[in-house]
């Protein structure tokens, strides 16, 4: 649970975790992965591409639905998680650790202020908005 406390959250149910001072991991929350059901396919851009805060960067497909992935931050993708692309079930089993999706070099660290902390995210979930 400790890591979840360090994470930032978007209202599209993505999380951000600082890796180094300006590199972050990005993934989707347990709430999102539980709601999607069995995840069958993840489409991510290649490393080297830019992402923009709150804009789409990929797609995630479950047996129930296809959903867009929205980047919680802007920056350049330094790495993608090949193993989660190969075995999407990892995401359901470990959304906060092995199931990370991409690593991004931040363009503007202040964008993190537009995101929620764990406490805010939990009350956001309770308020029933999604």
């Amino acid at each position: 649970m400790s890591k979840e406390k360090e994470m930032y959250y978007s209202d599209e149910h993505e999380w951000v975790l600082m890796k180094t001072d300006n590199t972050v991991f990005i993934g989707i929350t347990k709430f999102a992965s539980d709601n999607l059901g069995d995840i069958v396919f993840i489409e991510l851009p290649e490393a080297g591409n830019d992402v923009t805060q709150f804009e789409q960067f990929g797609e995630i497909e479950s047996v129930k639905a296809v959903s867009e992935l929205y980047s919680p931050v802007s920056g350049n993708i330094s790495q993608i998680n090949e193993s989660v692309v190969q075995n999407p079930e990892i995401l359901s089993d470990s959304p906060y650790e092995e199931g990370w999706l991409i690593q991004v070099e931040l363009k503007d660290k202040s964008e993190l202020e537009n995101l929620m902390n764990l406490k805010d995210y939990e009350s956001f979930l309770e308020s029933g908005k999604d």
Binding site: D38, V40, F41, E61, V63, P88, E89
Partner: peptide, 8 residues
Amino acid sequence: LDEALAAR
């Protein structure tokens, strides 16, 4: 039937 397997 395992629909997730079929799609993965």
